[in-house]
Amino acid sequence: MPRWLPRAVLLVLGLVACYQLGSWAFHQLIGLLVNILIAFFLALAIEPAVSRMAARGMRRGLATFLVFLGVFVASVGFVVLLGSMLAGQIVDMVEDFPRYLDSVINTINATFHTELSRLEIQDSLLRSDWLQKYVQDSASGVLDVSATLLGGLFRLLTVGLFSFYFAADGPRLRRALCSVLPPAKQSEVLRAWEIAVAKTGGYLYSRGLMALASGIAHYVLFAVLGVPYAPALAVWVGLVSQFIPTIGTYLAGALPTLIAFTVNPWYALYVLGFVVVYQQFENYVLQPKLTSRSVDIHPAVAFGSVIAGTALLGAVGALVAIPAVATLQAFLGAYVKRYELTQEADSATPASRRPGRVRLPGLR
């Protein structure tokens, strides 16, 4: 047996063991890594505001605390306002539910010539097996819901803590990172950091514009239908549909649909139809235009990055995909060498879409 064979076998076994250990550690820490990724992008989002306050002489830690306090107060006030509104509407809906049910039953009887009765329907529902099973499952799932809420609260605190330190100690973090790199690489790291801040801010700016447009459009509908709390519902639809990925649209549309049902059941259908139609308009017309302009990426790339981010990291990936791709594209664009178009390539491009360029002698 060759002398190198035992060492090679031990080396291979060691590499396999290291790979297994690294894979196990990565899967154990994937939740923490995702939280750090969210915190990093949140820190990039508030970096411009913190930097302006620090440039005016305020300590960076205090500036970060004030920004976080403002965001927290606005979020809590918004949740409390909507919670009180929703509680009042639920009470009204429960009190008026028999009247709504009688109206629906009368409409069905008049249309289909049936003889349905509200009391018979209530008795059949109360005695049904699926309702009893649903109540039992709901009672057994209270502990699961409580554990989920506690886990979400802990995750929120973790993200807030990391994002606070990333924003408050941003310059120190950049200096520590650059201190282990050669001078040529230090400038590239700083430029990538600045690009990430600009692209993340641009992404939030585009989301803010879409939230404003969505809020105005839905407010007009709510005001025309006479839905209560139209301004608050419009703000709810605009913010939730834009800043909660994947399921934000459904959460945003459920609440105004429920409130409209308390006014008139047909109004709920109108609101639901408008939400669906506006979502298609936003997906295919508004969002590609605003996103491509604010973060400077092609609409198809923006759409594909959201799909890829969702497939990799779920809702978190959908939220950070566009600013991450825009940052990577802007950073790599400086290293891509571009050449003057030939006559054949230039003639294949429509004149309205040709970028400004310097013509070389001999080219028409």
Rank of each mutant, 00 (worst) to 15 (best):
F154R: 15
A318P: 00
Y284V: 02
E95I: 09
G201T: 10
N264S: 14
S138D: 11
V73L: 03
I36L: 15
L313R: 01
V34E: 05
L82S: 02
W130Q: 12
A43Q: 04
F164L: 03
V16M: 15
F112L: 10
A196S: 07
A176Y: 07
V34M: 09
L272F: 03
A196Q: 00
A63M: 02
V276E: 02
T310E: 03
S187N: 14
A324R: 00
S146L: 15
T111Y: 11
L32K: 08
T200S: 01
F154G: 14
E47N: 10
D144K: 08
L32M: 10
W236G: 02
Y19A: 13
T327C: 03
A268R: 03
G31F: 04
V275G: 00
V135M: 11
V316I: 04
G201V: 03
V325L: 00
M210W: 06
L360C: 03
Q132Y: 11
T107G: 04
P182Y: 05
L319Y: 02
F331S: 00
I46W: 09
A87L: 13
K199T: 00
T327V: 09
L69F: 11
R338V: 02
G151A: 01
T114H: 06
R353I: 06
Y165A: 05
A311G: 04
P98W: 12
R364P: 07
K199G: 00
N35C: 03
L29M: 07
L150R: 02
A268S: 12
V316W: 01
L319K: 01
P265K: 05
A315I: 09
G170A: 13
Y134R: 13
L10W: 12
G362Y: 11
R359F: 10
L319N: 00
I105R: 02
S75H: 08
L190N: 06
I38F: 05
L11Q: 10
L319M: 03
A167C: 05
R172Y: 11
A318L: 00
L239I: 15
T349A: 08
S124G: 09
L116I: 13
K185I: 08
F164T: 13
A223E: 10
A334L: 06
E115H: 14
E344S: 12
A326C: 04
Q136A: 15
